[in-house]
């Protein structure tokens, strides 16, 4: 699998993204600067976390309008796999590749901790190496991860099986009490209609080595590689 990682001014998780993709695919991803107008020919694009453009105006708003994102959107619409994590998820919603928006955490606090996620289904290109309903532990680190969409959009996401991950507790209980940041319906990650674009706030790329304290993020990258081979 050939992949690219997009780099914006203020991105700071690109090396974590590269490590995770290289571990799963055996091929080092290409780093692509946001000002580029050409994407290398790749099977998969990752938009990593960080603080692109210093989160000016709204998180992800400036990054979404940078030259390379026009190419990423074209590639996504042509079926290329695109995965946005944290600020990358915010950028994908701002480009319109994914519905909804990420708002300030309901607590108004930056949340940096390990959290539990429920894998809603393993019938996606991003989750096939998990079990449906599996509870995984991965880190989160964000201030604006509170997923919002109108009721119709939320119902559509649920109806079409496009909620990929939800915040839960260690037993997989999804409730208001286990909702990390105020996200509607505990949503932590969603897919686009075609299923080739995933955005999520938590960081699976930071749970791929025992030294991270866990490796439960690795199957996500394995799933991506398997879906493309």
């Amino acid at each position: 699998m050939k992949s690219a990682v997009i780099l914006f001014p203020g991105t700071n998780r690109e090396n974590d993204a590269i490590a995770a993709l290289e571990q799963a695919s055996g091929v080092k991803p290409q780093l692509v600067w946001h000002g580029e107008t050409d994407l290398p020919k790749v099977d998969m694009i990752m938009v990593p976390g960080g603080f692109s453009y210093g989160d000016y105006l709204r998180c992800g708003a400036m990054g979404a309008n940078s030259p390379i994102m026009r190419e990423v959107a074209k590639a996504a619409n042509a079926g290329v796999t695109v995965f946005g994590v944290c600020n990358g998820f915010q950028i994908l919603t701002e480009t319109g590749l994914l519905p909804g928006a990420l708002m300030h955490n309901a607590s108004l606090k930056f949340i940096c901790k390990r959290t539990q996620l429920k894998v809603e289904s393993n019938a996606t290109n991003f989750t096939s190496a998990y079990e449906t309903g599996q509870v995984i532990t991965v880190p989160v680190a964000h201030n604006e991860g509170n997923y919002f969409a109108d009721t119709d959009t939320l119902d559509r996401l649920e109806g079409e099986g496009r909620v990929a991950f939800r915040y839960c507790d260690e037993d997989g209980v999804v409730s208001d009490a286990t909702c990390l940041n105020g996200s509607q319906r505990n949503i932590a990650g969603i897919l686009n209609e075609k299923g080739n674009v995933l955005g999520m706030m938590p960081h699976p790329e930071n749970a791929i080595d025992p030294l991270h304290g866990g490796v439960e993020g690795s199957p996500l990258f394995t799933s991506i590689v398997n879906s493309l081979s």
């Binding site: 105006l57 709204r58 708003a61 309008n65 919603t93 701002e94 928006a101 708002m103 919002f148 969409a149």
Partner: peptide, 9 residues
């Protein structure tokens, strides 16, 4: 519509 506001929210 394009940049200054996010009309979703």
């Amino acid at each position: 519509e394009k940049l200054l506001a996010n009309t979703v929210i």
